[in-house]
């Protein structure tokens, strides 16, 4: 498993647009399961509505875990996505 932490800088947090883009991005890596954790709550990042219902806000730090597939590459791609969009 490969993990990284990221602090959200988007003023609205993980809102519909980036959440949708994120799901799209993760769908490219079929062999990997991606989990996003904030505090006690974790969610499969493919679940768009559950992800939005985490209510992740600006300034929140989330943990992103990638399991299966080419973990290094997938984690790097997702981290780049977070930096560019969130």
């Amino acid at each position: 498993m490969k993990t990284f932490e990221y602090t959200i800088t988007d003023p609205v947090g993980i809102h519909a647009r980036p959440a949708g883009l994120l799901v799209k991005e993760i769908k490219n890596f079929a062999g990997s399961a991606v989990t996003i954790t904030k505090g006690e709550k974790s969610v499969n990042a493919l679940k768009l509505m559950a992800l939005m219902q985490m209510g992740i806000k600006c300034g929140d730090t989330v943990k992103v875990a990638v399991e299966g597939g080419d973990e290094e590459t997938v984690a790097a791609a997702i981290e780049a996505f977070f930096k560019a969009n969130l």
Binding site: A16, G20, N44, K47, L48, M49
Partner: peptide, 17 residues
Amino acid sequence: EAAMLFETHQMMCEDMD
């Protein structure tokens, strides 16, 4: 930006939960 709204809706339609 406006198009993305509907693209998000598309994804919501097939949301797993």
